[in-house]
Amino acid sequence: MTELLGHYNYWIVIILMMTGFYIVIARPNLVKKVIGLFIFQTSVFILFISMAKIEGGTAPIIEEGLSVYSNPLPHVLILTAIVVSLATTALGLALVVRIQEAYGTSNEDDIHVQDEED
């Protein structure tokens, strides 16, 4: 059972990552592209946190009577990464809003057409 499921978390993470990647490269809508990037980022978070887990461990808050804790270092890295991911998402969405105002569309194909006409 554990032999078979040993990499289950990682495989699902890769499927999620590829879902986000597909949205970014195949969908023309810019808001959807930002959402694809967001999905990609979140899957990376799950990858790191999965690696931090120790079988039978608990949350890394030290308490009497407990001896096995999960690895706190990836938690720290991902905690700050989540906040930074919001910062990048907000900046991306702000760019989309400005593009919408300048071109009147947030569809990448239409923007290319308008650029070629100029």
Partner: peptide, 11 residues
């Protein structure tokens, strides 16, 4: 579930 309570709160 993966013991990362701080991260869960942030997410």
């Amino acid at each position: 579930v993966l013991d990362a309570v701080d991260v869960a709160l942030t997410e």
